[in-house]
């Protein structure tokens, strides 16, 4: 595999660099994105403020003022050179092994606002929807939208439901939803259009915790079903 052909660097405004790895939701591509994410974190380039991995791209937010105005190069060129050096120096993008995370979900209709509709529409019993959702191992491709909102994929075709045409004004924190082939959990109460099939008692976002965010990009997630009682006493 020729490493050099797999990425392209371009400016994302005057304070960030976009690295594209292709244009697909694909585990192999995402693994490369996260490998570069790790490598960049470790190399701690001075002036880098944020590194944001997504499905098949990664953005580096930098401070353009760190660079002294010399050599007539732009800050974009200055940082690009260092990133290219990293990419080419073949200390190789090592794929970090995923962290396994198990997430309890109560699929009771008390919380699963859309599960009955999905059952009707897809002609699958509710139990089977739960089974299908729990059977999968999902990858956290990226975190975005809200603090700690993990985009996980991919759910079984049979329960891949489109977003609601009319988003709800408020979805409770912990609600587990489906949007197309993605599944995710609302970390905080928010308006939203994902179809809700359950709720987790876990704090997906807790501002007072040392690590306020439950998920990390690259996590491997599995859901398991709990009863209403178990949910309330969790």
């Amino acid at each position: 595999m020729n490493e050099k052909q797999l990425h392209s660097l371009s400016p994302l405004g005057d304070s960030a660099i976009l690295i594209n790895f292709g244009n697909a939701i694909d585990e192999t591509i995402n693994k490369r994105v996260l490998a570069l994410f790790e490598l960049l974190k470790q190399s701690a380039i001075k002036g880098v403020r944020d590194i944001v991995p997504a499905y098949c791209s990664l953005v580096i937010h930098y401070d353009p003022l760190i660079k002294k105005v010399t050599n007539n190069i732009t800050a974009f060129e200055f940082y690009s050179q260092q990133i290219n050096h990293l990419l080419n120096s073949e200390n190789q993008l090592t794929i970090k092994s995923s962290r396994s995370v198990k997430v309890p979900v109560c699929y009771s209709t008390k919380y699963a606002l859309d599960i009955t509709n999905i059952a009707t529409e897809r002609k699958i019993p509710v139990d089977e929807i739960i089974q299908l959702h729990c059977a999968g191992k999902y990858r956290v491709y990226m975190i975005g939208f809200l603090p700690g909102f993990a985009y996980m994929g991919e759910v079984d075709e049979r329960i891949a439901m489109p977003r609601l045409s009319q988003p709800r004004l408020r979805i409770e924190a912990g609600s587990v939803g489906i949007a197309d082939k993605q599944t995710g959990i609302y970390p905080v109460a928010s308006p939203g259009g994902w179809q809700i099939i359950g709720k987790t008692p876990l704090s997906i976002f807790n501002k007072d915790a040392e690590d306020p965010i439950f998920f990390q990009p690259g996590d491997e997630v599995q859901f398991y079903s709990i009863t209403e009682d178990e949910f309330e006493n969790y």
Partner: peptide, 11 residues
């Protein structure tokens, strides 16, 4: 707030 955008925390 920088350093947490990879966790969805906007600046």
């Amino acid at each position: 707030r920088y350093g947490f955008q990879h966790l969805g925390v906007n600046p």
